[in-house]
Amino acid sequence: MFNHPRRCASSRPGRLLTALTLGAALLFGMNTTASAADQQSITLYAGQHQQMVRLLVNAFEKKSGITVNVRPGEGAALASQILREGKRSPADVFFTENTPELVRLDNEHRLAKVAPNTLAQVPSQYSASNGRWLGVLARQNVMVYNPQKIDKADLPQSLMDLASDAYKGKVAVSPAEGDFLPLVKAMAIKHGEAKTLQWLKGLKTNAKIYNEDEGVVNAVNNGSAALGDINDYYYYRVREQTGKDAMKAQIAHFASGDVGNLVNVSGVAILDSAPHPQAAQKFLKFMVSKQAQTMLANSQIDFEYPLRPGIAANEQVEPFDQLNPPKINVNDLGDNSLAIKLVREAGLL
């Protein structure tokens, strides 16, 4: 190389320039997907599990010819992000696992109305009473337990009991999960704030803390915890992966009408600042269509109950009409602010 200084000197920057051009081209290439802002595309902030979102999006794209740009994330994080973005937000549609995030956006007046005939596709108690968000799917809160670690007869009757001394060191929970906070709110509705806080503090001494429900299911399955509190679909998802034979953990229910049997709703809404409201409405309509709801119920990836009447749930889960949830409307769950306050006060966050 030192023998040909001339050639080096001329070719090196040349090559560098080529590389820079190439890099710039790639950069712009990567950007086009993000900034293609024609009417034939919408941006979806999706807090639900990515695979079911993809299933849904692919079917919608095929049917409507509208491209959906998905920004995956956790529901609460995406809601916060939309609030921080303000009216500049690129999001059209916000789809999330739990309604409190939707309520939070609604409280900040960030949601547009859902088309009435879309709302009419599902029973009204699962959507916003003001029509600003739409219930799509539902699932129930359950106990998961390891029969080798605890006898079925010794399981608690109420969610409240998880905080009692009998279950010290045996419980697994994931208090940062979006699914846990609605339980806290429901508890506060049923038993009052003071008792809820006491319950949370008891849980803090009793429980092992995990980041997500998958962690709870696995902990119970491998015996590091005797029982845990989860939304049921995590159980089926983990079982699907672990294999039914290796799945030692079982599902159990609290007493009929207990807060522990709470039904959580996956909901969707259109942002007031949505750049493409018409396309967004089409997407919502599709989500509660017979096609989409049947497809989701039959997939082995979601295990949620379709809210559109007349569509059978996945054969692995218990029939929807056999559930014994507490008498609490999803609208009453509100946003998570109280739940977060209590959980933090108890030292769980």
């Binding site: 956790e74 609460a76 995030e101 940062a176 980041n211 966050l349």
Partner: peptide, 20 residues
């Protein structure tokens, strides 16, 4: 995050995810 072990990095992420 994959092995579901709580350290500072995953807790920061989960605080972000919880919309805190």
């Amino acid at each position: 995050a994959l092995l579901r072990f709580r350290t500072f990095t995953t807790a920061i992420y989960s605080a972000y995810n919880a919309g805190l």
